[in-house]
Design a protein around this nucleic acid. Structure first.
Length: 269
DNA sequence: TGCCAGGCTTCAC
DNA sequence: GTGAAGCATGGC
């Protein structure tokens, strides 16, 4: 157990920001996260402090990067012109959200599942996949399940994957698992590609279009210039920018702006 | 019960 | 190159 005081960090907002599907509130002030085959309990304490159920070594080695704690998030909001009232409000409302460094494989599959589904439905499917094909992890007397590996999902086959309520996306997930297992899709090597190269490789996966590819870039490869446009973002752009968003103004960190728009837009609707 | 969900592929034209 | 149809299934 370690207690940390973290500025510009709000676990409630991160959990509800739609970028990850295995960070869930389990009590009034407690969240449970399953990532990288580990289980982490996060308790919110008074005055912006948090208690994490891990050693300091694990926190430094795994979670510090996962939660992007070395980045300066107050710097981003400063770059929004005050004349843009919508975005200024969105950024203020979203203070505490960080762009997570998630596992690229898990991000790829979960965002393939995300197409044309609500966030609760995505979470259900991800849990079913994990419970059925993921490795069990014991923590605090309970059993949790790691996200299944490409090998496990290849072994599961399209039929096995289909039994986890992923619908027509089952062959997409199976295909992606096979691509990774065969080495055709080298997720480790892809980390070295430029943004346009990475986008192009992701688009070569069947079932991955421009929106999902941008989500994988942003949430799985930490390419914070990626700007996924889904129905919510398009709605915000139509509503507040007459259909044309000044994307170039936020070059270099557009993904963070996108996340503020998504979170604020959804919570205020 | 019916509608919608962090879209993508396929097929006309 | 552009636009529209079709898609499986859970949650509200």
């Amino acid at each position: 157990m370690i207690t940390v005081n973290i500025p510009f960090f709000n676990i409630r907002k991160i959990a509800d920001s739609g970028q990850c599907f295995r960070l869930n509130r389990t009590e009034e002030k407690e969240w449970t996260l399953i990532a990288f085959g580990k289980v982490l309990f996060i308790r919110e304490l008074p005055d912006g402090a948090y208690r994490f159920s891990c050693t300091e070594t694990e926190f430094r080695a795994v979670w510090r990067r996962y939660f992007d704690l070395d980045a300066c998030y107050d710097c981003y909001a400063e770059k929004i012109p005050k004349s843009d009232r919508f975005l200024t409000e969105a950024a203020a409302y979203s203070e505490g959200i960080r762009i997570l460094n998630q596992d690229p494989w898990e991000t790829l599959v979960t965002f393939i599942i995300s197409q044309r589904r609500s966030i609760p439905a995505i979470k259900t499917a991800v849990e079913r996949l994990s419970e059925k094909f993921g490795k069990p992890v014991r923590k605090a007397g309970k059993t949790f399940y790691a996200f299944p590996t490409p090998a496990a999902l290849t072994a599961a086959g399209t039929e096995g994957i289909l039994s986890c309520s992923v619908g027509y996306r089952a062959p997409y997930i199976y295909g992606a698992a096979r691509m990774v297992l065969s080495g055709e899709l080298d997720l480790n090597g892809m980390a070295r590609l430029s943004d346009p190269e990475l986008l192009s490789v992701l688009l070569s996966v069947r079932g991955v279009g421009i929106k999902v590819a941008n989500c994988v870039m942003l949430f799985g490869f930490h390419r914070i210039d990626s700007f996924p446009v889904d129905v919510w973002i398009q709605r915000m752009i139509d509503l507040h920018y007459n259909g044309r968003f000044p994307l170039r103004r936020y070059s270099g960190f557009a993904g963070i702006i996108q996340q503020y728009m998504f979170f604020y837009g959804r919570e205020k609707s």
